[in-house]
């Protein structure tokens, strides 16, 4: 089902950060560029506080680190959100909810995964009920490593994401569309009978256009 091609997950960081987007930029019209700039300037965050990472979101949003100056502000429901922050290890039980929330977000949408646990399982690497690589189940745009990463690191991650959005990079949601079968197969493998219904993702298969 799954064949490893090239890099995977966190290994791709160098590649994605170093990718030459000059070609993409040339294809953009003025409106596209304006839209891309607006999108990066206003990011509504759905912070999914799955693990210890949730504790890092508070200082990030409040006076000490003040993410609002970058236009980053919390959203209450997935419908309003642009960025899903998965802050820490994902138990299999939580994975279902995270996938549901992600699919309910409106495109364009981005995922930031926080901490070592989302990259390779971290200290839960041999746990029976924790997923190791979040990248297998959801298209992560950006990993912020550390255990836990400090708010400064998170801000750096956000700024990197903003730069990529401004450059016109499409983001993981397109990858999710194109490889939906692969993602769904991976999800089904860990969720089994507990798999979530496809009412939020079926429209992607019938070829919804962005």
């Amino acid at each position: 089902m799954y064949h490893k091609t090239g890099c995977e997950g966190f290994q791709c960081e160098d590649q994605t950060l170093g990718a030459d987007l000059a070609g993409v930029r040339d294809e953009q019209t003025v409106v596209d560029r304006l839209v891309a700039w607006l999108r990066q300037r206003s990011l509504f965050v759905l912070a999914y506080g799955t693990g210890c990472g949730a504790i890092e979101i508070r200082p990030l949003m409040t006076s000490r680190y003040d993410a609002e100056r970058f236009g980053i502000i919390g959203a209450a429901t997935p419908r309003q959100a642009d960025v899903l922050v998965i802050s820490g290890y994902l138990a299999i039980k939580t994975l279902k909810r995270v996938i549901r929330s992600y699919e309910q977000m409106q495109e364009p949408k981005y995922v930031i995964a926080l901490g070592s646990c989302t990259i390779n399982g971290g200290m839960y690497w041999d746990s029976y009920n924790t997923v190791k690589q979040v990248d297998h189940y959801l298209p992560v745009d950006l990993f912020v490593n550390g255990c836990m990463p400090r708010p400064e690191a998170l801000i750096e991650g956000f700024v990197a994401l903003q730069k990529r959005i401004a450059d016109g990079e499409k983001g993981g949601w397109l990858r999710y569309r194109e490889n939906l079968d692969w993602y769904k197969a991976n999800q089904r493998r860990v969720l089994g009978a507990n798999m979530l219904p496809d009412d939020t993702s079926a429209w992607l298969q019938v070829g919804g256009q962005a």
Partner: peptide, 12 residues
């Protein structure tokens, strides 16, 4: 997709 496609705190 369905009447149950609601923001329901991630719940289905």
């Amino acid at each position: 997709g369905s009447r149950q496609d609601l923001s329901f705190a991630g719940e289905v």
